[in-house]
Computed example of a mutant assay.
Amino acid sequence: MSSGLKSMQHRGVQFSMREEVPGEWRYSFEVDGKAISGKTRTRLQLLAVRRIKDRINRELNRSHGT
């Protein structure tokens, strides 16, 4: 059973995520006007959140040239 859409914020970036099927999380966020979406596979919601935050960090670093 899929869970509802969750909306959170990390380093000023609003992101949303939801579990499509058990163990597969879809996410989306926007950095500097660029929409980014993807999926990560894990049974643990907290691990999915951590992976999404890591992806946001990579995009922020890329966009700010650091």
Rank of each mutant, 00 (worst) to 15 (best):
W25D: 10
H10L: 09
S2E: 08
I36S: 01
G65Q: 10
H64W: 04
G4L: 03
N57P: 03
N57I: 05
A48V: 07
V31L: 07
R43T: 11
M8A: 12
G65P: 04
E30S: 11
R58S: 04
S28C: 08
R50A: 15
K6P: 03
M1L: 12
S37T: 05
V49I: 13
R11V: 08
M1K: 08
A48D: 14
V49T: 10
R50F: 12
H64D: 01
H10K: 14
Y27G: 11
W25F: 15
G4C: 02
P22W: 09
V31M: 09
M8L: 15
S63C: 06
Y27F: 15
W25G: 03
S3Y: 11
T42V: 09
R26P: 00
H10S: 11
R55A: 10
K34P: 00
R51D: 04
P22N: 07
V13E: 03
R55P: 00
Q9N: 13
T42H: 02
V21P: 00
R55K: 14
R41K: 13
S28K: 09
S3R: 09
T40G: 07
E24R: 13
M8Y: 14
S2V: 01
S63V: 08
K6W: 04
I52A: 08
E24M: 09
K39T: 01
F29Y: 14
R58V: 05
D32C: 07
K39Y: 04
I52W: 06
Q9H: 12
L46H: 12
S28F: 05
Q14C: 03
R62I: 01
G33H: 10
K53I: 06
K34N: 03
G4E: 08
S2Y: 12
M17N: 01
A48H: 14
S7R: 03
E20D: 14
E19P: 06
E30T: 11
L46C: 12
V49S: 02
I56E: 03
S28G: 02
V49N: 12
